[in-house]
Amino acid sequence: MTRQGECAGCAPGFGAENAVPHARHRDAEFHHHHSHASTSHHSGDHHLLAIEHLTVSFDMYDSDAPFFAAERRSHEQLHGLSLSVHEGEVLAVVGASGSGKSLLADAIMGLYEPNACVTGTIWFDGELMDAKKLPQLRGRGISFVPQSVEHLDPLMRVGDQIIGACARADRDLRRQRMRAFMEAYGLDASVERMYPYELSGGMARRVLLICALMDEPRLIVADEPTPGLDLDIAVHAVEDLRTFADGGGGVLLITHDIDLALTVADRVAVFHGGTIVEETSASSFASPDTLRHPFSRALWRAMPQHGFAVPDGSADGGCA
């Protein structure tokens, strides 16, 4: 097994810019395509999750050609994407809605469409992953918090869903675990007997998070957990993720809401045009001067409190 995900001494194979022993990584120092936040640390001398040069493409029929003559074409959606998550930190991936951020979550969870072609390398906790190993980590190391309440079974009581399928002997143990989590996250005991339609948006978010926490994950991947929620509930939802990270876990928070991301994230990865253009400490967003990529700066300037500016030449619609 190769252990290139390691950071100590930065194994050969990474660029010369990375030839810095990990013990000397400091805040805002640039290495492995990213710079650190003050809370980032490499336990066991490697990243909790490291992704290098991830490319996802889809094999589709040419939509411009006549139906029977259409040939298969490959559409590349993610291009050479690299990022890493450390223990005890929240990494927010921010970018435009509909730009393919969710494909990143799918790739980490090992959920591949039949026509997808995925290349690149993913290390989890220092171990090189492949298409067989990633699905085995679902619920056993990596947990997924999906976007909406629609991911809950509408015909099953919430409590039964959280406990999930398990051996009869484990059932009572898991029930106790669930009750402890429900109390910790401010859910009433009566919620256990409810059906998903009876939950408010904020309660549903907590139920989904508890589902993820039940399996004691090391890493949580949360895909757009907040749209459609009011600000106070959204802040609660992301603070719950923060609490998990403070307990030593890693969180990959995929969102389009940069304001919200900045309230909880240690680091921010800016997603643009199918790849991560910059991975930096959240404090770099205090000023556009500390951001490296033009799109990050455009994102900063477009925030309402920073001038609400539109980048030049971005609208390209028109009449036929």
Partner: peptide, 15 residues
Amino acid sequence: SAMLDAVTQAEVWHA
């Protein structure tokens, strides 16, 4: 604009 990123939000509102 709740579901839009900052750049798209600014574009849509300016338009």
